[in-house]
Amino acid sequence: MNILFAVLLLGGLALLAGIVLAIASRVFHIEGDPMMERIDAVLPQTQCGQCGYPGCKPYATAVASGEVDVNKCVPGGERAMLAIADLMGVPPKEVEEEAAPPMLAYIREDECIGCTLCIKACPVDAIIGAPKQYHTVVESHCTGCTLCVEPCPVDCIDMLGKPEVLEEWTWSAPGKSRLVIEDSAEGETHVRAA
């Protein structure tokens, strides 16, 4: 009898707690996946597909649901990986593929046949042109994803390194390297890190 009473008491209390939690889960219900948005925000948005997903958002969704590792974004490199690992609260994992230096697509216009295939492939609409007209890449919008290279039937798209300009130069971290002055072949004096 005593035991029955104890069981009932405990059960009743548990039922009460269950009801409270059920109400709470209604009140605190969340729509959508806020983690996906946050992960998407730290991705470089090149839409290159090197992670194996068709764009940055699908990859972010996959990471947020935990079905893929945090280190698959190649152009984002270590910084994106660390940021995602930080968001997900998982230990950082080395990015396997080294990111290529930033590149831009260039169309050799005299070879272009105006097929518009590259325009359809570009994920950020950075190629302009019309059928039977030369196409060209808007440099300031090109993410260097290389997705336009494959579809070109005449292989007239080159991926070239982004030209380094003075305005975008920044100081590198102070290292242990010492600077040495030397004379180059062109008769100009250079200072280089040794």
């Binding site: 889960s25 605190f28 219900h29 946050r38």
Partner: peptide, 9 residues
């Protein structure tokens, strides 16, 4: 539940 709602990170 409260934390999940208020701060997903």
């Amino acid at each position: 539940m409260l934390i999940h709602k208020s701060s997903p990170v």
